[in-house]
Write a protein that binds this DNA or RNA. Structure first.
Lengths: 122, 122
DNA sequence: GTGTAATATTCCGCTTGGGGCATATTCCTG
DNA sequence: CAGGAATATGCCCCAAGCGGAATATTACAC
């Protein structure tokens, strides 16, 4: 039960919703999220940490960067709601704008833990 | 956006989840909810009011009783999540226990606004 | 009117959480 | 080692929200 409440607590903040929307497209490091959302770094970092603390997302340290991502098998209730948000909310300009900025962002740099990090990033 | 956040805020409390679970079965007055949940009256009343303030449920005054119910067309996101909870959470004993107590409760008394209230209730 | 059941509200103490800001930590480079 | 980039954390203030207890309100019966 508290498990579900935890999911809903993660979903009831604007910044966290925007972050989850982005992470559905793939892993991201903090500075990319920060850049796309246009929010201060501590704010982004704290909300990412909040999501991780509640086990909605995972993180991997890659050199200077911390890459956050949705786990391979997300919380079922979380997954269901991310789907819902795609259906219901993707008309919402804020989500679309974030995704547009995401596309303009070169995420191949540091945000793929398995890749060669020779090409610098952020 | 804030519309969705509102839904999630309503869903991230144990008492409210239990209440919504019950109201899916039909309208209920405060004292029935109170009895089924085994929670103090002010607590139940406040959470019902919270849900109403956020437009997740409606209320009708029927003589001495206030009957709360889900609207005919609930918030789509709310509806989706209530479905999810049926699928995912109805194994959770607390929900099942509540429903069992609901079945043992005579809700025909005051909790049907359109009915004859000659037969007393609660 | 009084009394009573059902419900709503107020007050208080406590915890959670969000944001801004400054600072600390981590990791790499040279 | 020093320096710098990326990230994390701590502190502060403030608002929201939960619970318990007492009290207020509403509506009906008599």
């Amino acid at each position: 039960m508290e498990e579900y409440i935890s999911v809903y607590k993660c979903l009831c903040d604007r910044t966290r919703l925007r972050i989850l929307n982005l992470l559905q497209q793939g892993p991201l490091c903090v500075c990319h999220v920060q850049h796309i959302l246009g929010e201060p770094q501590p704010k982004v970092s704290k909300q990412l940490n909040y999501l991780k603390r509640h086990q909605m997302i995972e993180s991997v340290r890659n050199a200077n960067w911390t890459i956050y991502r949705l786990p391979e098998e997300p919380q079922p209730l979380l997954e269901e709601n991310l789907k819902c948000l795609q259906d219901l909310a993707f008309q919402k300009s804020i989500f679309l704008e974030d995704l547009a900025r995401l596309k303009q962002t070169d995420t191949s740099a540091a945000c793929s833990p398995q890749e060669d990090e020779a090409t610098s990033g952020c």
